[in-house]
Each structure stands twice: as C-alpha cells, then as structure tokens.
Computed example of a mutant assay.
Amino acid sequence: MHFTEYDTRLAAYAVIVDDADRVLLTWFNSKGGADPAWLLPGGGVEYDESLEEAVRREVLEETGYAVAVGAPLTTHSFTGSESRHTGRPFKSVRVFFAATIVGGALGTTEVGGSTDFAEWIPVADVASQAARADIVDIGLAAATDKAHG
C-alpha cells in the first residue's frame, strides 16, 4: 500500500527509571478508545514539534516532571485496518527515548486528558500489572538491553 493511502500516527515515549529501580508510568483512563492501562509517559507528536519536544511536553503534562531527553532506545510500529478518526487504514510509529528528571514534582498537569495520574512502579513489579500496554514492556526491554549492552 502506498503511503498516501493510509494515515500515520507518530508518537514518542520516555523510559524513566530511577536509582531505586522504579519506572515512571502513567494511568491511561481510556479516553481515546483503548482499555484503561499503565503506559509510559508520552504520546502523539504534534505537527510543529520534534520528537524530543514531544517527549518533554508529554512527560510534563502526564507526570508533572521536566525531563532531559536522552538517546533513542528503540522504535516499534504496527498497522490497523481502520483509523477511528478517518476510517482509513493506519500505521502507528512509536519512538522510545531514555529520559532523566531535571525538575518538577509528581502530579498530572493536563486537564480533561487521557492520563489520570502517574506513579513510580518498581521494575520488578511491572510484569504483575495485568492492565499495562505493550509499550511498557517494549520500552523497558529496550532500556534493559541498552544498560547491559
């Protein structure tokens, strides 16, 4: 299929693991169609912003923290037969970045958005969180690979 025949959603996410081996996750409240679940902070990249700008904006909105965006960790994509916005086939492209907190305080700042709250979860406990999106596992696996590679 030619790229003009489908929609593309570009998203960028932060993988933030602290010195206590906890990962910063956000609770997605299902405003957007999917089931409620834990996610990595991040989301759609606006037309006029870079991937890194999107990560900084999304992390601040969803967690209350300012971050320094590090190196890209991995990418992941998938396709679907019908966008809920346009009805056209779609491709989702997700880029994961390492990030570190440089300021702010824990607390969701977006109003009326898809994130209810953010929380530090021990990395060892992530697998037991039944309601988590695949991006959590993809991001943590990439961060672990980079840390040990």
Rank of each mutant, 00 (worst) to 15 (best):
V111M: 08
G112P: 14
S128H: 07
A118P: 06
P122H: 07
V136C: 11
V111K: 15
D116C: 03
V111T: 15
S128Q: 07
V111I: 10
I135K: 12
T109F: 00
D137T: 13
F117I: 15
A127E: 08
R132F: 09
A127P: 02
G107C: 04
I135T: 04
A124Y: 05
Q129C: 11
D134G: 10
V126N: 12
G112T: 12
I121E: 02
V136N: 03
D125C: 12
V126W: 12
D116I: 12
A131H: 12
G107W: 03
V111A: 06
T115P: 00
R132W: 11
R132Y: 04
A133N: 14
G113L: 03
A124S: 14
D134T: 11
V136A: 03
Q129Y: 14
T108N: 10
G112Q: 04
A133R: 11
R132I: 03
T108Q: 10
L140P: 15
T108Y: 01
G107I: 05
I138R: 13
S128N: 06
F117Q: 09
L140C: 04
Q129L: 14
T115W: 03
D125N: 15
V123M: 10
Q129D: 09
D134I: 05
S114W: 01
T115E: 01
E110W: 01
A118M: 10
I135L: 13
T109M: 09
G112D: 07
L140H: 00
R132V: 03
V126Y: 06
G139L: 13
W120N: 00
I135D: 10
E110H: 02
T109G: 03
Q129E: 08
R132G: 14
E119N: 10
S114V: 05
T108H: 00
G107A: 00
G113K: 09
G113T: 03
I138P: 09
A118H: 10
A133E: 11
D137M: 09
D125Y: 09
L140A: 04
T109S: 01
A127M: 04
E119P: 09
E110S: 11
A133H: 10
S128I: 08
V126S: 14
A127C: 04
A130E: 14
D125I: 07
E110D: 10
D116S: 14
D137W: 08
V126I: 11
E119D: 08
S128M: 14
G112H: 03
G139W: 06
D125L: 12
D116H: 00
I121A: 10
V126E: 13
V136K: 00
A133Q: 14
I121S: 04
W120D: 04
T109V: 05
I121F: 08
D116W: 05
E119G: 06
G113V: 03
V126R: 12
A118R: 08
W120G: 06
D137P: 04
A130G: 15
V136Y: 01
A131W: 13
A127W: 08
I138A: 00
A130M: 13
G113N: 03
A124N: 06
Q129G: 07
D125Q: 07
